[in-house]
Simulated scan of single mutants.
Amino acid sequence: MQAHLAAAAALRDEAAHARTRAAEESRAAARALRSRGLTVREVGAALGISHQRA
Protein backbone atom coordinates (compact mmCIF):
# COMPACT_ATOMS: atom_id res chain seq x y z
CA MET A 1 0.00 0.00 0.00
CA GLN A 2 2.81 2.45 0.81
CA ALA A 3 4.27 1.94 -2.65
CA HIS A 4 0.94 2.90 -4.23
CA LEU A 5 0.65 5.99 -2.07
CA ALA A 6 4.21 7.02 -2.91
CA ALA A 7 3.60 6.44 -6.62
CA ALA A 8 0.41 8.49 -6.50
CA ALA A 9 2.22 11.35 -4.77
CA ALA A 10 5.01 11.27 -7.34
CA LEU A 11 2.50 11.29 -10.19
CA ARG A 12 0.68 14.26 -8.66
CA ASP A 13 3.98 16.14 -8.50
CA GLU A 14 4.72 15.28 -12.14
CA ALA A 15 1.25 16.42 -13.17
CA ALA A 16 1.68 19.73 -11.38
CA HIS A 17 4.99 20.26 -13.14
CA ALA A 18 3.43 19.36 -16.50
CA ARG A 19 0.57 21.84 -15.93
CA THR A 20 3.09 24.58 -15.15
CA ARG A 21 5.13 23.81 -18.28
CA ALA A 22 1.99 23.67 -20.42
CA ALA A 23 0.92 27.09 -19.16
CA GLU A 24 4.39 28.50 -19.87
CA GLU A 25 4.33 27.11 -23.40
CA SER A 26 0.83 28.47 -24.01
CA ARG A 27 1.93 31.93 -22.90
CA ALA A 28 5.00 31.74 -25.13
CA ALA A 29 2.84 30.68 -28.09
CA ALA A 30 0.40 33.52 -27.43
CA ARG A 31 3.24 36.06 -27.32
CA ALA A 32 4.73 34.69 -30.53
CA LEU A 33 1.38 34.79 -32.34
CA ARG A 34 0.68 38.34 -31.16
CA SER A 35 4.16 39.45 -32.26
CA ARG A 36 3.32 38.12 -35.74
CA GLY A 37 0.31 40.40 -35.88
CA LEU A 38 -2.54 38.07 -34.99
CA THR A 39 -5.46 39.57 -33.11
CA VAL A 40 -6.33 38.44 -29.63
CA ARG A 41 -9.37 36.63 -31.07
CA GLU A 42 -7.16 34.81 -33.57
CA VAL A 43 -4.69 33.86 -30.85
CA GLY A 44 -7.53 32.51 -28.73
CA ALA A 45 -8.82 30.46 -31.66
CA ALA A 46 -5.35 29.10 -32.43
CA LEU A 47 -4.85 28.06 -28.80
CA GLY A 48 -8.35 26.69 -28.39
CA ILE A 49 -9.27 29.17 -25.67
CA SER A 50 -11.56 32.18 -25.48
CA HIS A 51 -10.24 35.53 -26.66
CA GLN A 52 -10.61 36.81 -23.10
CA ARG A 53 -8.07 34.25 -21.92
CA ALA A 54 -5.70 34.82 -24.85
Results as ranks from 00 to 15, higher is better:
Ala15Lys: 08
Gly44Gln: 01
His51Leu: 04
His4Glu: 14
Thr20Met: 11
Ser26Thr: 10
Ala32Leu: 01
Leu5Trp: 10
Glu42Phe: 05
Ala6Asp: 14
Arg27Trp: 04
Thr39Asn: 04
Ser35Ala: 06
Ser50Pro: 06
Gly48Leu: 00
Val43Pro: 02
Ile49Asp: 01
Ala10Trp: 13
Gly44His: 02
Val40Thr: 07
Glu42Arg: 03
His51Met: 00
Ala10His: 12
Ala6Ile: 15
Gln2Val: 15
Gly37Tyr: 03
Arg53Cys: 04
Glu24Asn: 08
Ala30Tyr: 03
Ala54Arg: 01
Ala18Lys: 10
His4Ser: 09
Arg27Leu: 03
Val40His: 05
Ser26Arg: 09
His4Val: 13
Thr20Gly: 06
Ser26Asp: 09
Ala6Arg: 13
Ala29Cys: 07
Arg12His: 14
Leu33Ser: 02
Arg31Ile: 11
His51Thr: 01
Arg12Gln: 14
Ala46Met: 06
Ala30Met: 05
Gln52Lys: 07
Ala16Pro: 03
Ala32Lys: 00
Ala28Met: 05
His17Phe: 14
Met1Trp: 09
Ala45Met: 03
Arg36Lys: 15
Ser50Ala: 06
Ala7Phe: 15
Leu33Phe: 05
Glu24Trp: 10
Ala7His: 14
His17Gln: 14
Glu24Gly: 07
Asp13Ile: 15
Arg34Glu: 03
Ala15Gln: 10
Ala45Gln: 00
Ala23Asn: 09
Ala22Leu: 10
His51Ala: 01
Met1Pro: 11
Val43His: 03
Gln52Asp: 06
His51Ser: 00
Thr20His: 09
Ala28Tyr: 04
His4Pro: 06
Gly44Met: 04
Ala22Met: 08
Arg36Met: 15
Ala32Gly: 00
Ala6Trp: 14
Ile49Leu: 03
Ala15Asp: 09
Gly48Ala: 01
Ile49Arg: 03
Ala28Thr: 06
Thr20Asn: 08
Ala7Gln: 15
Ile49Gln: 02
Ser35Asp: 06
Ala23Thr: 12
Leu38Tyr: 00
Ala9Leu: 12
Ala16Trp: 05
Glu14Asp: 10
His17Cys: 12
Ala3Met: 11
Ala15Trp: 08
Gly37Lys: 05
Glu24His: 11
Glu24Met: 09
His51Tyr: 02
Ala16Cys: 07
Ser26Cys: 07
Ala22Asp: 12
Ser26Gln: 10
Ala22Trp: 07
Thr20Trp: 11
Val43Asn: 04
Val40Pro: 05
Ser26Ala: 11
Leu33Cys: 05
Glu25Pro: 07
Thr39Glu: 02
Ala29Ile: 06
Arg34Cys: 01
Arg31Met: 12
His4Ile: 13
Gln52Pro: 05
Ala10Tyr: 13
Ala22Glu: 12
Val40Trp: 10
Ala8Trp: 14
Ala6Met: 14
Arg36Ala: 13
Gly37Ile: 09
Leu33Asp: 01
Gln2Ile: 15
Ala45Lys: 00
Arg19Cys: 06
Gly37His: 08
Leu38Lys: 01
Arg12Trp: 13
Leu47Asn: 01
Ala8Tyr: 14
Gly48Cys: 04
Ala23Met: 10
Ser50Gln: 03
